[in-house]
Design a protein around this nucleic acid. Structure first.
Lengths: 336, 336
DNA sequence: GTGAAAGCGCTAACAA
DNA sequence: TTGTTAGCGCTTTCAC
């Protein structure tokens, strides 16, 4: 930087002003400095800038595992949204276990100005941890509610309800659900709990009876568990003509198990998933799904985080909650 | 840090020594410092450390797009490998176009000690750019060979050859390939070119004739293009009893198109993919694939990058090339 | 085994 | 509009 200043015949500060697009630099001076920067191939040292300004220009994104398609697509969208704002994204995988998530939450990811955090294991009972967080934090997903942070989520209840209403409107009467949480405790706000709630609400609206035999608990939401839950459902002998899989990964396993058993989709069994991941477009049959508004979630979360970073510790506004708009994407598995 | 030093009754230097696990600190002193750190909730400022030491503890990973399952799984493995070494990972998506990749290559990702780069658009003709790179760089994939950098890749030719040999051993005689590059120029080392080469070599070994009508060009490698290429293949009337899809995303589209057309897999047509992504286990039928050794690629690439970072600009060793071990994972689509 | 002092490259605050 | 000064928090060097 010093070399650049010398070459342009100005001071360090002027170079800094040019680099940071400050106003109050004469166009002529600016041009001269830019020329010197180009000549010398000068690149600002971001560690130094970070040290001085207290900003790193990097945000963190903590997800359970990137190999889960939903999180890969979410990360894709978050990186794109951050890049539009000139920010980098450090990604951490915290899903190994609860302790790992607590560690990530307590320490943040390194060298970041703030973090987007999508927990898998932490729940409402860990809400207290949030009060100790000293950096800007935006929560994604449902697991921890009522904390002091901004929160971006999806219409879990409404989406699941709409999915079941869609099935009911197609004349399905025995609608199973795959993906409930094995450890049903009250007061939990996990996506599974919320989506099951939406499922039950829709049954009530449609005048269909609840039948616990149609609710299959599985964990985690991985295709193999969709396969197994469906096999059990088939083996149990209980009748069903539709399945709501609580996410698309499960739904892919459900389709697989139904095909193995010779059940035709959608003729014998209609299937609807949740998340609208890319894979669902090319399964056989293609998968109807609830699109939770992933782009909106990513864009909103990054925008909120940036606002919180910029307002600093003044903590002006109360925590905000944003729920992205959802829609049902109909494909072959419900008889498009 | 100063506060910690005061509280422990030592100097800054001693605190630094404790934090960095330096030897030559008396256990008693160390304990006292650690107590002070805990009491004060002290956390080292990584920007300052980065500024002083010239290391950020963060590496970059540039991939075309995270939403492509192969890259999501690769990123998952890279993050895990980096975390084992206490490093963070900034992920950049550079696949939008060639200019974007050139920019990422020239500038690196922000605040990193080095980068893993998996280009999609840059090719052998851009080799010269590599000489201007001033930071530690490890290349992933095939597109740029013979540069001054370490390079981690897979057995593209051998993997594709083994795949076709597998099909030939099953008695298949009319083996099509989906995913060749539309712009076939000589001297290119793209994965598609290499895999097509393996395909042709295997045909020769098996005594099967080459038939250009069985080679379908496609870009990019996305399921929709697998669908379309297969539809064209079917419409062309040329006979075939097996398809090598040059990656699993294409293969998923191939399976889809075959199902649409009423061709049974593997009875009428055997299908084999490349990459062994997780999705392939749950397609119907499940997908036989060439596993390129993704974990090994990630682990090796991170290890090489760390070595290069540590040896600094001394540039001791000549560039290294590592090819991960591959294996064929047989599933239903070839009649497991 | 520990301390004192210097300085990494940058920007904020103030001076000119 | 531009220059000067100070200092962000840490690690390095060298002295003790």
């Amino acid at each position: 930087m010093h070399d650049v200043a010398q070459r342009a015949g100005v001071s360090n500060k002027t170079v800094s002003n040019v680099v940071n697009d400050h106003p109050h630099v004469r166009p002529e001076t600016r041009a001269r400095v830019q020329q010197a920067i180009a000549d010398l191939g000068y690149r600002p040292n971001l560690s130094a800038r970070g040290l001085r300004s207290g900003r790193t220009g990097v945000i963190g994104l903590a997800v359970p595992q990137l190999r889960q398609p939903y999180f890969a697509e979410l990360a894709d969208a978050v990186i794109a949204a951050a890049e539009r704002r000139g920010l980098g994204v450090i990604i951490g995988q915290a899903g190994a276990d609860r302790a790992h998530e607590m560690d990530v939450l307590a320490n943040g990811l390194r060298q970041t100005d703030g973090m987007l955090f999508s927990p898998e294991h932490l729940g409402t009972e860990d809400r207290g941890l949030l009060d100790d967080v000293t950096y800007p934090l935006v929560l994604l997903g449902e697991r921890i509610f009522g904390g002091p942070n901004d929160h971006v989520t999806m219409h879990n209840v409404e989406g699941a309800r709409a999915a079941v209403e869609h099935l009911a409107a197609l004349g399905r009467r025995r609608i199973a659900v795959v993906g409930a949480h094995p450890d049903q405790r009250t007061g939990q706000m996990r996506p599974s709990d919320l989506r099951v709630r939406g499922y039950r609400e829709a049954l009530a609206v449609a005048g269909l009876p609840e039948d616990r035999r149609l609710e299959r608990a599985v964990a985690p939401w991985h295709p193999i568990n969709g396969v197994e839950a469906t096999r059990e459902l088939l083996a149990s002998g209980v009748e069903f003509d539709a399945i709501l899989a609580l996410n698309d990964s499960l739904a892919i396993g459900v389709l697989r198990a139904l095909a193995e058993a010779g059940r035709r989709v959608p003729d014998d069994v209609a299937v609807i998933g949740f998340d609208n991941i890319a894979d669902g477009r090319f399964t056989t049959p293609s998968l109807t799904s609830v699109d939770p508004g992933r782009e909106e979630i990513a864009e909103t979360a990054v925008a909120m985080l940036v606002e919180r970073i910029e307002e600093g510790s003044r903590a002006l506004r109360p925590p905000r909650l944003h729920k992205a708009a959802f829609r049902i994407v109909t494909r072959e598995s419900t008889g498009e």
